[in-house]
Design a protein around this nucleic acid. Structure first.
Lengths: 241, 241
DNA sequence: CTATCAGTACTGGTATACAAGCAGCGGTCG
DNA sequence: CGACCGCTGCTTGTATACCAGTACTGATAG
């Protein structure tokens, strides 16, 4: 067997790379909702054994991004509108609350980072994935302003379903410019110390994508969970060679 | 053909029981912060193989309750004051936000549950663990009133460090009566439709334990993480028999 | 033709074997 | 005496073997 580059020195284990790879593929919809994930197939394609793959799937399962049915199969979770709503509620609660804790004088370096971030968002040739990365950094940066940057990890863990819905929405109308403008509006209100309008702008912004979910659902229902209990279906194993 | 309502027949796996057992022992401080967790020892004592134990430790590690150092060992995380603060912030944000979403007419059955819960909390011979269980149910019940019951799972995942600090505090003064009274106060304000006083009462309540953390830390510093980088130390393996 | 029922190939769950790294002990050599 | 260095026993990481359960397939009986 070909032995891959062995370098498990510290913290960089096979499991972490497999986990990050799979998580990214799920969030970017490269692995679409409903896709079957075979531990054996993933292990073979990633060049590792079942163990790290399996442990990654367990982690993703705890995040709600993957569903594991014993003796049946593992599947990318369909986007659950209820979970999208939950994530929306949590995110709004946390981000709005952080605006209340903004200090009188903001940390200059954090402000500078946010400014540069907004500048990047205005680039006309921005790709969607680039915009998502900037968006993530922007919102985490806002949390940092009030000293609650670590809370972002919790928000991230909860908003997997929301993120996939967001991507579905952006893949359709593909207009990050509108969100970039909203970001700038929030930022200006924060800089001006106008807490009330910052709250309003933030709430408007966070609900913009959320309101699109039903529209997307009507167009691509197969990506969403049915209200009834999700049913695992083993796909036909028809291989031509 | 009607597809049979397939429910995950074997949700009860070794891993889930091991995970729940370990998590409970960590939260109740039966496994105190800093304790060494050997996968082999745990497997032997629980009567299973390393696999489910290991997978449980990975899950607990993702929750921040356990730290795993490759090739060194696994340890129960020391209570991190920063994470306690993060959990406090998130919990306060979510629970206060839910109060804003309370419907005009509350669901009668949920109200009845909460009323019975509060009645239980008044029992004079209530044990600490019983009180904790009631406390959890009460707060989740409040979230349910506003239709955000599922958000509790996210709060639970984030508040592991906070819970351990709470237990440390309660083990000392052991007066759940004060918290029970605060619960009743919140509930009365909710029933009366007085959103403002409900918010105030909730905030006061949630911060009561939090303010005790520093006092506890002064008395039992070994249970808390040092601000400097935590250093894993392999304990001496001296066994007399 | 239809219904039934084994066969079978797959699934994830668990147990086990082996690999690689860290720390302390104690002998050895300068 | 002191620095070094391999031995030893532990740790977690990974690979693999085996198990129980499930669903599709296809032959077979009615």
């Amino acid at each position: 067997m070909a032995r891959s580059n062995r370098q498990p020195s510290r913290e960089r284990t096979s499991r972490t790379t497999v986990y990050e790879t799979l998580r990214q593929k799920v969030l970017t919809l490269e692995l679409p909702p409903g896709a079957a994930l075979s531990e054996n197939e993933l292990a073979a394609s990633l060049g590792v054994s079942r163990t790290p793959v399996r442990e990654s799937l367990i982690l993703l399962s705890q995040e709600g991004l993957v569903q594991v049915f014993p003796q049946v199969g593992s599947f990318v979770s369909r986007v659950d509108p209820a979970k999208v709503a939950d994530a929306q509620f949590i995110r709004e609660a946390v981000e709005l609350a952080s605006l209340e804790d903004l200090p009188a004088d903001l940390a200059p370096d954090l402000v500078q980072d946010l400014r540069a971030n907004l500048e990047e968002q205005r680039r006309p040739d921005l790709g969607l994935e680039e915009f998502f990365a900037l968006d993530e950094a922007f919102h985490q940066g806002l949390l940092r302003l009030s000293g609650h940057g670590n809370a972002w990890a919790t928000v991230v863990a909860a908003k997997g379903h929301l993120d996939r819905a967001r991507r579905l929405g952006l893949y359709e109308n593909a207009s990050p410019a509108r969100f970039a403008a909203q970001h700038a509006e929030i930022f200006d209100a924060v800089l001006g110390g106008n807490a009330a309008s910052a709250r309003t702008a933030m709430r408007t912004h966070l609900r913009a994508v959320f309101d699109d979910v039903e529209r997307i659902r009507a167009r691509s229902p197969e990506l969403f969970a049915t209200n009834s209990q999700t049913v695992p279906v083993r796909r036909n194993v028809v291989v031509w060679e």
